[in-house]
Write a protein that binds this DNA or RNA. Structure first.
Lengths: 196, 196
DNA sequence: GACAATACTCGACGCTGTGTTGAGTATTCC
DNA sequence: GGAATACTCAACACAGCGTCGAGTATTGTC
């Protein structure tokens, strides 16, 4: 199965498949993407496709790995920081918003739908975010930078899911602002004594 | 196209298809549901299916209408109320959680994935929630029951999407509690002067 | 209780899309 | 130049969707 070293024709074709997929998936929903489209874009026959990838899903997974890396990277500064830090938070959200704008159809299917094919990818990404997010929340509370609130794990989970779902529907600047506000209030905001 | 009045054999079969679908969809993801399964469950042949419904999607839409009604109904008391009202809010969330538990696969596909087939249904449900939610937020602010915050429309949108996404992943009691807390803080919580 | 209209049923067909196989051609390394 | 490996493809088998046309059952009406 191994390839030779150096950039061979095969490598270029593999890349061409990936690029075609990336391209088509900025507009086409995952369900409508066919292998025929991919091979047409890459200039090979349907059956040659199977030399490079086991299935359509394998292509999508390769793309997702590239995207997920970018996403977590952008959140790094905020995740590693502490206390209410609107600028880092906004930066993380802005990059996320851009990624959702560029790869909406793919991310929606992989992160939101329940597609069994992406289950493990989804669990990994979400779990990673939740773990680091919960740690940050717990840290802030311990250091007295945030008041008490819901279980950090559960709170982080809700906020991450909110981010995904909002950007899936709307990755505008306003959405970034609103998410920023909700996250900050959820983490640092205090409820008045008892609502009227 | 019209049927005769009274409950005919045809009506019973139509119901049988719907029930079979409801049943299978409590465990099977939408993508895996085939018309063959539906007709097997209802005891008719594949082609007879098309006498009752135009497509698989038509069956799903019929089911979704039933579910959506219940969902909005459960939120009625909170949507029509005013001020911080944890009990009404919790009640609405609890019913929602149950519906997601029972119809998870279907709701996930219809509300979260970008399936073009459900686009209009999705827009309707979300738009309805957002409209009523935004109105409630604006009302509370006008009456001085809530402080300032993000644009009501945008805030309502984020909170609704969060609800959908969280329940899609986890409709436990704890999730209800967390959502309750986040919604209340987002609407009524105040941020301290300036962080750190 | 016949008979027309309408409700309902189904087998057979064509289509699109997936994935496999086996035989072939190109490339690279020695 | 020859063997190993990279790559290519036409042909096939299969699953699922939706259509067509020819039927059979049921019902309302006289």
């Amino acid at each position: 199965m191994g390839r030779r070293r150096g950039t061979t024709k095969g490598d270029r074709r593999e890349r061409a498949i990936l690029d075609t997929a990336r391209d088509l998936l900025s507009t086409t929903p995952v369900g409508r993407l066919t292998i025929d489209q991919l091979t047409a874009g890459a200039g090979i026959s349907r059956s040659s496709f199977y030399f490079y990838f086991d299935s359509k899903t394998a292509v999508l997974e390769a793309l997702l790995d590239e995207i997920a890396e970018e996403m977590v990277e952008a959140a790094r500064r905020w995740l590693d920081g502490s206390g209410d830090d609107p600028d880092s938070l906004r930066h993380a959200l802005e990059v996320s918003a851009r990624l959702w704008r560029e790869h909406g159809p793919l991310l929606r299917q992989a992160l939101l739908a329940e597609d069994q094919e992406f289950a493990s990818f989804r669990e990994n990404v979400v779990a990673r975010y939740v773990k680091e997010g919960a740690a940050r929340i717990a840290r802030d509370r311990q250091e007295g930078l945030a008041g008490p609130g819901p279980d950090p794990q559960s709170l982080a989970h809700a906020l991450i899911r909110m981010k995904f779902a909002v950007f899936a529907a709307d990755s505008s600047v306003e959405a970034v602002e609103t998410l920023c506000a909700v996250v900050r209030r959820a983490m640092y905001g205090a409820l008045p004594a008892t609502g009227s």
